[in-house]
């Protein structure tokens, strides 16, 4: 049933006036962003905060991209692993996903970055030293990025699995009955169709990773949030420090979601109304 409203001349209509459908929320957000930007230009406290915090942008972006890239590989392995015919592979993948999804991010970051990664590299180094006399050591930045990747790998594995399972089994049956192997059917029939269900939530997770790089501040990585903390603590200008960091994050996430929207529209325009 479609929504309706009454007009001035006492009729009802399904037409909605422009002010009803106009995205006011975006006007409000843009107004806030413009105001923040203006403050940074004219107010020297804000300007100082900006100057101190913006160098963290590089690290934030770098760890986002690395974490997303590594997570993508883990997710593809764990996602398809859960559907494997091999009982060991299937259960290893499932255990990983359930473990990671069941633990909050902060304790996981501590566990992985402070316990699992150092012990893992220690173990590895004992062997490496004998062989090639070279030691692997990971910075806190790298450890934290790996942690994010391990966490998001589990979330994104579920996206892969869901996307693949959203394709009707008839598609696989048609492929197999034509003589295609499991692998060929997956690659040429199922995955291309699943990508359309996979890409939008993947984009959302990219944005989520960007925001969650702020958690790396607990390990002392000098990204945006950590720099905002340091600035605020040393100058007692808390408002300026945190407003500026919020401003930077908002610009990044909103920009990304606009890009994502364009990408999604392009994908649906391609092949509208399947089956």
């Amino acid at each position: 049933m479609s929504d309706y409203r009454s007009t001035r001349d006492g009729r009802i209509t399904d037409e909605r006036p422009w002010w009803d459908t106009f995205p006011w929320w975006s006007v409000i957000i843009i107004a806030v962003l413009v105001w923040m930007g203006w403050q940074i230009v004219i107010d020297e406290d804000y300007a100082l905060a900006w100057e101190r915090i913006i160098p963290g942008l590089g690290l934030t972006l770098r760890s986002t991209v690395y974490a997303f890239g590594i997570a993508l590989v883990i997710a593809l392995l764990a996602g398809t692993g859960q559907m494997s015919r091999n009982v060991v592979v299937r259960n290893v993948a499932r255990t990983y996903v359930e473990f990671v999804r069941g633990i909050p991010m902060l304790p996981l970051i501590f566990t992985v970055a402070l316990i699992i990664v150092p012990e893992g590299t220690d173990l590895l180094n004992k062997r490496l030293e004998d062989w090639i006399g070279w030691e692997l050591s990971l910075s806190f930045e790298m450890r934290a990025t790996i942690t994010l990747a391990v966490i998001y790998g589990a979330y994104m594995a579920e996206i892969f699995r869901g996307g693949i399972q959203s394709i009707p089994p008839g598609q696989t049956e048609a492929g197999r009955s034509l003589g295609l192997t499991r692998r060929q059917t997956m690659r040429s029939v199922v995955l291309p169709q699943a990508m359309r269900a996979i890409i939008p939530p993947m984009g959302n997770d990219f944005i989520a990773i960007l925001k969650d790089t702020s958690l790396l501040s607990v390990l002392g990585a000098l990204e945006i949030t950590q720099r905002a903390r340091q600035f605020s603590a040393s100058t007692f200008k808390f408002r300026e420090g945190y407003f500026v960091s919020a401003f930077i994050y908002l610009c990044l996430t909103l920009g990304l979601s606009v890009l994502l929207g364009i990408l999604e529209r392009r994908m649906t325009r391609d092949r509208k109304g399947e089956r």
Binding site: P168, G170, Q171, E173, A174, G175, R176, S177, L178, G179, L180, T181, S188, V189, P192, Q193, R271, E274, R275
Partner: peptide, 30 residues
């Protein structure tokens, strides 16, 4: 099995054409 399935054609109730491919691509793929 994979090899032999190619010798047995199957037509389904729901057609099960590949929606992301054209008719030509549907038929040439296998």
């Amino acid at each position: 099995l994979d090899h032999l399935r190619a010798e047995v054609g199957m037509v389904f109730q729901q057609f099960n054409l590949f929606p992301h491919l054209t008719v030509l691509e549907n038929i040439t793929l296998a």
